[in-house]
């Protein structure tokens, strides 16, 4: 039942006609603050990005727009650094997302046991989530220092020669991914944990009665029960990886993402074009490409999930 339905005339207080009109309009008053802000600062910029991407707009004079058609896009496709950053976004995305989610799954599984100090563990692994990208990156940039970094020192103790975490392509991408993994693993573990706790206990009891080992229980009860949660985290991490920005920017503090752009991501490339080279129109084109990329990745994800679950249901 809703309010309009309850507005039936009743003898105690007969609503006047003004009141009745207000009753019909008042829901809009409740959503008005959010939607006016949403329209101005949320929806409009997203849609307008596509429009701006067809113009030449300079950072110093954002009011002047000059029609360029698809030039921003063709310039983009001709720029080798666009392709570099697209490739880097992909490799850093894989390097950061896959270990992160696998470790989160393992941690969640362990956290799901009966444990002493459960709340402490849960809160402690969420600590990295509370730090900002900027703070985390500055600290890790220190730790990954080539000459005096603690990580190279630790590697030295076990007999591995120092790694140049800044200039090497693979090494720098691993370093950047490490920051992402550090910040998000605990968060994802808690989300998996919440999903695991909504799997009914009876399913495990039944599996146990059938003589299933803990591992088989994990594979045949936990994982299927977690599928919606896993899909959710994969999508969120994919979107996060696509727009990765702060980590590569502050790792060495340069907008080019390393001397040879070795860890420049699309997000950073966009920032470089817009706020490094003042080409806002070009930056808008990159934003639009990122948007399409996210759509494609999320779509592919949905497709794979659906096919997978259909296969499973057909078994």
């Amino acid at each position: 039942m809703t309010l309009t339905a309850s507005a039936r005339p009743n003898p105690a207080s007969r609503p006047s006609s003004i009141r009745r009109v207000w009753r019909q309009l008042s829901p809009y008053a409740y959503i008005a603050p959010f939607f006016s802000l949403f329209a101005a600062f949320g929806l409009f910029p997203l849609i307008y990005t596509a429009y701006v991407s067809l113009y030449r707009v300079e950072l110093q004079t954002p009011g002047d727009m000059e029609w360029r058609g698809l030039d921003n896009y063709t310039a983009l496709l001709a720029d080798e650094f666009f392709w570099t950053s697209l490739r880097n976004t992909f490799t850093i995305g894989v390097l950061s997302t896959v270990p992160q989610l696998v470790m989160a799954l393992g941690l969640a599984h362990v956290l799901n046991y009966k444990l002493r100090g459960r709340t402490f563990f849960r809160t402690a692994i969420l600590l990295p989530y509370a730090t900002s990208v900027a703070a985390a990156t500055l600290v890790f940039a220190q730790l990954f220092g080539r000459d005096f970094g603690l990580i190279n020192y630790g590697l030295g103790l076990v007999g591995i020669s120092p790694v140049d975490w800044q200039t090497g392509t693979v090494a720098s991408q691993i370093a950047v991914s490490t920051i992402v993994i550090w910040r998000w693993t605990g968060y994802n573990a808690l989300i998996y944990l919440a999903g695991m706790q909504s799997i009914p206990h009876e399913l495990y009891e039944a599996a146990e009665m059938d003589g299933a080992s803990r591992w088989r229980q994990f594979v045949h009860v936990t994982l299927p029960g977690l599928r919606p949660t896993i899909v959710f985290t994969v999508i969120v991490s994919t979107i996060g990886a696509t727009q990765l920005f702060g980590e590569p920017l502050l790792f060495e503090g340069s907008v080019s993402g390393g001397i040879s752009h070795q860890y420049q991501t699309l997000g950073l490339y966009m920032y470089e074009q817009g706020w490094g080279f003042f080409h806002l129109g070009r930056a808008a084109a990159i934003a639009w490409v990122m948007f399409l990329l996210i759509l494609a990745l999320v779509g592919a994800n949905a497709l794979i999930t659906r096919r997978h679950s259909r296969k499973e249901a057909g078994r």
Partner: peptide, 27 residues
């Protein structure tokens, strides 16, 4: 419809709108 629009944009990173947003703020 309004709820669908709200939920639908939930997954779109606001970072993708920064250029028009910046132009708006500059304006």
């Amino acid at each position: 419809a309004l709820l669908a629009v709200t939920v639908g944009t939930m997954m779109i990173p606001p970072q993708l709108g920064v250029i028009p947003l910046f132009m708006l703020i500059a304006e």
